[in-house]
Write a protein that binds this DNA or RNA. Structure first.
Lengths: 197, 197
DNA sequence: GTCTATAGACCGATAGAC
DNA sequence: GTCTATCGGTCTATAGAC
């Protein structure tokens, strides 16, 4: 019985390189703003090679969202995240968005796809809904515990506040793209000011 | 001296019909998701006729944003808006977003263009920055007066709060598109709950 | 002011060799 | 698994008749 080669961490295969680049372009410029030709040129392969791995652009787009969903679940369940007290879980969430802001003013997955949502293939729409739903549910739980322990402060229900906070963060990354990072940091500071007791 | 014909309110000219339809499609599906052919077919004219009025799609896009900016200034300076007390000015703002949510889950201009911002022509980018800047400045003033009179309640500076509230509203319309109107109303209720003293 | 006709580029996708 | 070659469609935009 032969063992499949372990994925080399320093040399991702073509399939992964395609997905990485497509994800970057999606978050930096939007789904309709890159083509198989762009990907092929940047990766030094031919467009047909990408069609081999992802037969259609719909498949590629769906793969991007599906991977982000897997990453979200992994991150959420990491001991260094799951075992934190609520206020620090909130900070861990902010840190993720800070990373986006620093990397070429990337917006988050949700913010990148929401405007064009109706033009997306159905599987992509479904994955994005799940992504947003699970993230919201996670934050609602964090907020509920935080309120109960007195570490976080807000009016209204945890789930309503979770929807509001995530929506604000998604929008904040968009504002950073249109202007600069300043309003993004203003918004996050404002959220901290209001939430941290 | 001849008088130019007054614009017939019930029969907008071709130029305006093009702009109206393009604006609708922009807000409902995104800037890259409609073409001159789509516009032409829906209006019963040929693509070339649209090129006559708006030589390039960049010109058309810029005209959409420029008109929204003119509308914003007009709305803001209307006596029935400008003379209102702060809490009612805030409600007037919410009413504008409610209208968007009800019309085919339109996002606002900002939310429609932010994701693809880097792919937009420079004049469009500039107009959008001005649009967002003026709206933020207006709301900051409303919030400042509201806080001073005790009608509105929030921590932090009026301008920081204004950026946060507008960003949240823009994001809320995007969430409505991805899911349904429910989270939009949840977010606006949350904003009311927090701001109205 | 609107038309016909078409240019010229780019798109996503496929067939089939290697 | 990646290549060459190419198809058919759509896009923005232009030229020129009416």
């Amino acid at each position: 019985m032969t063992t499949p080669a372990a994925p080399a961490a320093l040399a991702p295969d073509t399939r992964t390189r395609i997905l990485d680049l497509a994800e970057s372009l999606l978050l930096e410029r939007g789904f309709n703003a890159f083509s198989y030709q762009h990907l092929a040129k940047a990766l030094g392969v031919k467009p047909a090679a990408i069609h081999y791995h992802y037969p259609s652009k719909d498949d590629l787009g769906t793969a991007i969202v599906a991977r982000q969903l897997r990453r979200l679940r992994k991150w959420r369940d990491l001991p260094r995240v799951a075992d934190l007290p609520p206020a620090e879980q909130l900070e861990a969430l902010f840190a993720v968005y800070d990373n986006h802001a620093r990397q070429e003013c990337r917006v988050c997955l949700f913010g990148a796809l929401a405007a064009d949502f109706r033009t997306l293939p159905a599987p992509m729409q479904a994955e994005l809904r799940t992504f947003n739903g699970e993230l919201t549910a996670w934050l609602a739980q964090v907020l509920a515990v935080g309120k109960a322990t007195g570490a976080l402060r807000f009016v209204g229900s945890p789930s309503a506040k979770a929807v509001q906070v995530l929506t604000t963060l998604a929008g904040a990354l968009q504002v950073a793209r249109v202007h600069d990072e300043t309003p993004y940091h203003t918004i996050v500071s404002q959220l901290r000011l209001e939430l941290l007791a």
